[in-house]
Design a protein around this nucleic acid. Sequence first.
DNA 1: GGACATAATGATATTGTGTCTCAATAGACT
DNA 2: AGTCTATTGAGACACAATATCATTATGTCC
Lengths: 155, 155
Amino acid sequence: MPVTPEVILTAFRQKGLRITGPRRTLACLLVETVGSEFTAEQLWDMALARDPDVGRATVFRAVEILQELHLLDRVEFADGSHRFRFCNNAKQHHHHITCSQCGKVIEVDACLSAEQIAKVESLVDFSIEGHRLEFFGRCGECRDPANPSIRHNTY
Amino acid sequence: MPVTPEVILTAFRQKGLRITGPRRTLACLLVETVGSEFTAEQLWDMALARDPDVGRATVFRAVEILQELHLLDRVEFADGSHRFRFCNNAKQHHHHITCSQCGKVIEVDACLSAEQIAKVESLVDFSIEGHRLEFFGRCGECRDPANPSIRHNTY
DNA sequence: GGACATAATGATATTGTGTCTCAATAGACT
DNA sequence: AGTCTATTGAGACACAATATCATTATGTCC
């Protein structure tokens, strides 16, 4: 079942935000990007192809809003860079694993258990409001078949 | 037991890198930063105060090397920015929790268990070479005493 | 100690990424 | 349709980091 742009537009509406031309363009664009990553700049490029008038700032602003709405995931790479990703299972909490060689991204539902998080909270006088978890590695295609078990073990 | 600059310089030597003036300056500087965070730019500023000739690029290069040597931790904040931190327990694997209000950083040794990581690895055709885990929240001082349990639950 | 090969440096230009400002525009509601 | 104001777009700006390359200085060998 494909995701429709309405999902995004509805989220905007529910937040009391207006449905504008650029936001429509982006919504239509994003549902077609499922499974791929892009920088905000790249998203702007893609949007320009559909509407030569959309402004750079508008796209950057939309990316920020969509992140807050949990419709856009920020994926961090091993080199410190990041890209965004419109995930199909946006509603479900998940993390990502990225291939440090080819950049492939896969969603994983692994996470710390509530108990583990509660334990951290009890040890440091902090109330934990969120966390970020990223896995780095090599995908099957990039892993050298001759040395399948080479690990850097930066665990 | 305070950390000495030798720890850093020795790490350089063991990697086959030369001990240079700028690197000495940085080593001495870093051991005095324990418990605080800084950007590469800020580190450069601090270095300039001790040696007006150190170049910007040199400091940035050193930061990169020190990260590889696991002597400098890259700490990510909730807003997407990052700073570096010379941790006293650099040898021991750990993560950080940052206060999204005042920016305070605390080291936590919580982490996924080896089993959890192994499970991820078995589910996605990836060999996991590393991961990054950051906790965000509010420290005791920043948390509103009247509403101590407000959570955003971005878990 | 002196000479050598080259790692490392520093100045500068350049790129990349994202933010800010503000007048103009256009949703949404009546 | 008219009004209010969120949103937009252009461009200036800020910041972070990298690339280039001639010069310097380290470590090593003698």
